[in-house]
Each structure stands twice: as C-alpha cells, then as structure tokens.
Design a protein around this nucleic acid. Sequence first.
DNA 1: GTTATTGCTGACCAAAAAGACAAGTTCAAA
DNA 2: TTTGAACTTGTCTTTTTGGTCAGCAATAAC
Lengths: 215, 215
Amino acid sequence: MVVKKQKQTKQSINRQELEARILRSAEIVFAEKGYNGSSMEAIAAVAKISKQNLIYYFSNKELLYKRVLKEMLDIWIEKLSFLEKDGDTPELVIRRYVHEKMQLSRLYPNGSKVFAHEIISGAPMLKDYLVSHLKPQFERDVKLVKSWISKGLIADIDAEHLFFTIWAATQTYADFSLQMEVLLAKTSLDEDDFERAELAVTEFVMRALGAKKIN
Amino acid sequence: MVVKKQKQTKQSINRQELEARILRSAEIVFAEKGYNGSSMEAIAAVAKISKQNLIYYFSNKELLYKRVLKEMLDIWIEKLSFLEKDGDTPELVIRRYVHEKMQLSRLYPNGSKVFAHEIISGAPMLKDYLVSHLKPQFERDVKLVKSWISKGLIADIDAEHLFFTIWAATQTYADFSLQMEVLLAKTSLDEDDFERAELAVTEFVMRALGAKKIN
DNA sequence: GTTATTGCTGACCAAAAAGACAAGTTCAAA
DNA sequence: TTTGAACTTGTCTTTTTGGTCAGCAATAAC
C-alpha cells in the first residue's frame, strides 16, 4: 500500500490532535451514557469545542461512535494475537494473553465500556465486524488450544469457554470497576488492585490448565 | 410487618397482570437500549398499551427503570445467599453458588443486561443500593471464604477476586451472549450451551479452589 | 340505579438534540 | 499580498420524547 506523504503543516497537526482529542472525549461520554444517551453537544463540551465544529470533524454521531468502537477493537485484535513464538510453552502464551488483556482493561477502560454497551445492546453496529474480524481469530486460537490439549500439554478443558471465561474475568475490571470500588470501599481501582487482580486471574487460569508450578 | 389484605377485585387482578407485563416489557427495552435510549413509547408498544396508559401505571421513566433494577437485584440477593448448611463442604457451597448464578443468567438475561448497563454507566441510580445491600453480603461471604482458607479447607486464593471472577464468568453468559452466538455461529445459546458453560466454569472454579476430585 | 373510584385515551406542550446552512475567520501557497 | 482552502461559529428547522391535562369509559360500592 502506498502511503501518501502528507506535508505536516500547522493545520494538519492541529487536525490530528483535535481529532484524537474528540475521539477520547467521545469515548468518555459514550462509555458513561451509551450511544443514545450521548449528545453531540456533551461530547463537544468535553472536547472543549463547539457542537458545530465537532460536526465539522465527524459529520454525524453514528460515524463518530463507529470510529470509537473500531479504534478499540483494532487495539484488541492487535494486542491479543495469540502468537506462539519458538520455545514458548502453552502456559507462557496464555499467561501473556491474560496479562495483555488485563493491561487493556486498565489502559482503555472507556473503550472497553463502549464495547460492552454495544454488545449487550445486541451489537447493532458491530455484528458484521465481529463475524469478519473476531471470529477468524477466535477459531484459530481455539484450534491452537485444542492442539495443546491433544498433545497433552495442558489439561483437557473446554477451549471455547476458556476464552469466554478469560475475557469475562479480565474485562470485568474495566466494565464493572464501579461495583468493585463500592465493594472494596475505594474511590477508584489503583495500580495495586490491578496487580492483585491479574495475579488472581492468572492463578485461576493456570490452575484450570493444570499447570504444575504456580507462582 | 402487617400485610394489608387487599380485596382481589377483577380490576386489581388485571392491574397486577398488566404491571407485570409492563415490567417485563420495560426489561426487554432497557436491556437493549439502556436507560437513555429507551422511550416510554417503545416500552408501551412492547407491552401493547398506549404511552399514556403506561404513564398511568408508572408515572415516569426513572421510576419504572428503578423498579426493573430493583426486581432483578432482589432476585439475585435472594438466590445468591451464600448459605452454609450443616454438612456442606466449601466445595459444595461454591458449586451451588456457581450453579445458581448461572441459572440466573439463563433465566433473567434481560434484567442482567439492564444491571450491566447501569453499572458500566457508573450506577447513577444504584450506587446507594449497592452500598446498603450488596456490600454487607459481599463482606460476609468473603469472610466465610477466608475462614475456609485459614482452616485449610480450600487453597489459599484471593477471596475478593474469586467472587469478581465468578460473577464475571457467569454473568457474561447473559450480557455477552451475542458475542458468543457470533463466535459459535448460533442464533441463540441453547440449553446445551448453558450446560457446557456451567460445566466449564464450575471446573475452573473447582480447580482454583484446589479441589481434589473434579467431576 | 346512582355515585364514586379506577382505568384509559387524545390533544397538547416544552425541552432536548441532530443536523443544515450561511457567514465569518485563519492559514498556507502563489 | 492576494486567493482559495481549511476551520469555526451562530442561527434555524425538524424530530423525538417525557410528561400534563381534561375528559371519557368501565367497574365497584352503596
């Protein structure tokens, strides 16, 4: 693919910066209010621009929403490729996978929430993307896990539901953080909470795999 | 508490029925669209009454929404009391807990989704209830698990995060059912899927507890 | 049968919000 | 410095939606 070299004028730099700021702002508002509850005006206010200017950059709400969703999903798909490098044990691969997923919950809680809202709502804007992008990766990853099982490298577990469980257990630290904050009597989850969470989840998963050594 | 005996007229019976139908309808719409995205008109349409009549029964949207939420939470709190009967092993108690939670995901997917939307959005209408009702139960249950650990009945796991993981892993079968349907190439999760899911989740949790026999 | 209560509906209103449009402003290239 | 393009804003229209209100209809009480 040919990348058109764009001259970096003052304007184009501003444009990029402002677009990024808008996307971050939209993420915050969509995460809290969902698609329908978020007004362009509210997003503009967070981004500190006028509604009209927001519309200039993203001509309508649906488009903006889809951009936010797609950004999040692209990050996930990139970071969560289940790559088996030479010499990696299944244990290490899965351990790394849990770690990465947990990082994403910590670093992108808002994007994660937008995604969650969307899926819970029946994914009206996302279904096709799931089929075309997520499903192939899922099937590949499931196949790999099943091959580990058949080679006796890990315990005989349900591969599909292993993924569902890992996703749920990690994603919950983004989506349901408020519930945990209430139950743990904290104003927000800090570094330590995430570390403890990752340790706990990793240990659960490792035991499920029948790993011998747990540390 | 004195229960006022209400005469069961034809009207009052209809009222109860219609109220229940409205609540079920509201649950469906709120689950799909969230609070802001759900219009009273849409709820009325599902319940097959006029918007004005809906407002006659539930004078405003917030009230209706809170009723739906409260109904769901009351069911949860009732079904998920972590009761230790005489002779129950920790293993059995937790096994039953997972089973109950899974049942709730299967039987009340819509209520579960409404709850999820609410928590993800920062629980604007629910925070107080969480503090007053859920937190005490959580703390009691955590305490019990910790006592099991100190008695050496189960492995030394992180009690708080054990609950977070169980909740996430079970709730996901209600909230994220669409994602699974896409990935498993099904139009809806059936009895078998839930059975398989429960088996998988139960096994994960049992292994995490360090249970000797797994079946 | 008459009256009072409960249940229901149509006509409306006010607020919110998406987005169109036109006009003005800033900036970069010639 | 001029010119055209990129950027920004104020005004207006239309649609949606939560909710009111007055009145009609069905039912229960007497």
